[in-house]
Simulated assay, not measured.
Amino acid sequence: MTDTSTPPSAESAEASAAPTATEEASEAKKSESVASDSDLFRQSEIAADYVEGLLDILDYDGDIDELVSAGRPMVEVVGGRLQPLVGQRGATLEALQELTRLAIFRATGSPSRLLLDIGGYRAARRKELAAVARNAVEKVKEHGDPVRLEAMSAFERKCVHDVVNAIPGVQSESEGVEPNRRIVVRAAD
């Protein structure tokens, strides 16, 4: 039987030259964050191009801003006459967002958490939902009974959860199945 192992002195030299597992993990995280940031910017560019094509087809005018915020790609469309692209309670906007996410998936092969906003709808809706959440919290604190809110989209539920979870003494959870998924606000356990 022949010994094919490396002599101990060679192993020691290789081990001191090779990075440790911790160093390798640190380098991998650095390259991942750089790659993910560039991936997010790429996703917002793809989305902006797709939305621009839709606006051209529909003969709508709008300025398109592409950005990355809070770790997700975003596209904002600003201009006049955009309300039909938002639809009733943002239904058309949600559909356009899903189509844009599909365009990103088709181009990149990976799912996207793109957030599309048209005419500032999401920013305005976020303010309305914060008021709804605070009102529900007040009712829970005053009466002690859980408060069930109306059915909401995932975006709307996230906005409400963020506000409720920032207030001590209350908690929120989602219940039900789409499209009738809603939030229940109750006293914290």
Score class of each variant (00 low, 15 high):
residue 70 A to V: 04
residue 129 L to Y: 06
residue 90 G to E: 12
residue 77 V to F: 06
residue 124 A to T: 07
residue 115 L to E: 14
residue 95 A to T: 14
residue 136 A to P: 15
residue 11 E to S: 05
residue 109 G to D: 08
residue 19 P to M: 05
residue 66 E to G: 10
residue 69 S to F: 10
residue 132 V to L: 15
residue 44 S to Q: 01
residue 11 E to F: 08
residue 168 P to V: 05
residue 103 A to R: 02
residue 39 D to Y: 04
residue 185 V to N: 15
residue 44 S to E: 05
residue 150 E to M: 06
residue 173 E to D: 03
residue 19 P to K: 04
residue 12 S to K: 12
residue 126 R to W: 05
residue 8 P to G: 06
residue 92 T to K: 04
residue 141 K to A: 03
residue 80 G to Y: 14
residue 90 G to D: 02
residue 2 T to H: 11
residue 49 D to R: 08
residue 138 E to Q: 07
residue 88 Q to R: 12
residue 81 R to L: 10
residue 123 A to E: 11
residue 136 A to I: 08
residue 52 E to R: 13
residue 172 S to P: 10
residue 13 A to T: 10
residue 94 E to A: 13
residue 116 L to H: 02
residue 10 A to R: 12
residue 21 A to K: 12
residue 135 N to D: 14
residue 17 A to V: 08
residue 183 I to V: 14
residue 105 F to N: 12
residue 166 A to R: 12
residue 72 R to A: 09
residue 144 G to M: 00
residue 25 A to Y: 12
residue 39 D to F: 01
residue 115 L to R: 07
residue 32 E to C: 09
residue 24 E to P: 06
residue 112 S to E: 07
residue 117 D to F: 04
residue 70 A to E: 13
residue 83 Q to M: 08
residue 20 T to Y: 10
residue 104 I to N: 04
residue 81 R to E: 15
residue 3 D to E: 09
residue 19 P to G: 05
residue 147 V to G: 04
residue 148 R to D: 14
residue 35 A to V: 07
residue 22 T to Y: 05
residue 14 E to R: 14
residue 86 V to C: 03
residue 90 G to R: 07
residue 17 A to F: 06
residue 39 D to R: 15
residue 80 G to D: 15
residue 188 A to I: 00
residue 150 E to G: 10
residue 177 V to R: 11
residue 166 A to I: 03
residue 106 R to C: 00
residue 154 A to T: 13
residue 63 D to Q: 07
residue 77 V to I: 14
residue 181 R to Q: 08
residue 75 V to N: 09
residue 164 V to G: 00
residue 39 D to T: 14
residue 15 A to M: 13
residue 119 G to L: 00
residue 74 M to K: 13
residue 185 V to C: 12
residue 121 Y to Q: 01
residue 81 R to P: 00
residue 51 V to A: 07
residue 118 I to C: 09
residue 151 A to G: 07
residue 150 E to D: 14
residue 108 T to V: 12
residue 74 M to N: 11
residue 185 V to Y: 01
residue 182 R to I: 03
residue 73 P to Q: 10
residue 11 E to N: 11
residue 87 G to M: 01
residue 123 A to L: 09
residue 39 D to I: 01
residue 161 H to N: 09
residue 40 L to S: 10
residue 46 I to L: 09
residue 153 S to V: 04
residue 51 V to N: 10
residue 177 V to F: 10
residue 30 K to M: 13
residue 39 D to H: 01
residue 153 S to E: 10
residue 181 R to G: 12
residue 14 E to A: 14
residue 165 N to L: 11
residue 124 A to G: 03
residue 123 A to W: 00
residue 172 S to N: 03
residue 181 R to H: 01
residue 13 A to C: 06
residue 163 V to H: 09
residue 91 A to P: 01
residue 69 S to K: 09
residue 157 R to Q: 08
residue 126 R to K: 12
residue 129 L to Q: 02
residue 91 A to N: 05
residue 52 E to F: 01
residue 31 S to E: 06
residue 141 K to I: 11
residue 23 E to H: 03
residue 106 R to H: 08
residue 84 P to R: 03
residue 15 A to K: 12
residue 104 I to T: 14
residue 103 A to Q: 02
residue 155 F to H: 04
residue 51 V to S: 15
residue 122 R to N: 02
residue 152 M to P: 14
residue 101 R to M: 13
residue 14 E to H: 04
residue 177 V to E: 15
residue 121 Y to P: 01
residue 176 G to E: 08
residue 95 A to P: 11
residue 61 D to H: 10
residue 142 E to N: 06
residue 82 L to V: 02
residue 44 S to L: 11
residue 67 L to N: 07
residue 45 E to K: 13
residue 11 E to I: 07
residue 161 H to W: 11
residue 5 S to Q: 08
residue 179 P to V: 02
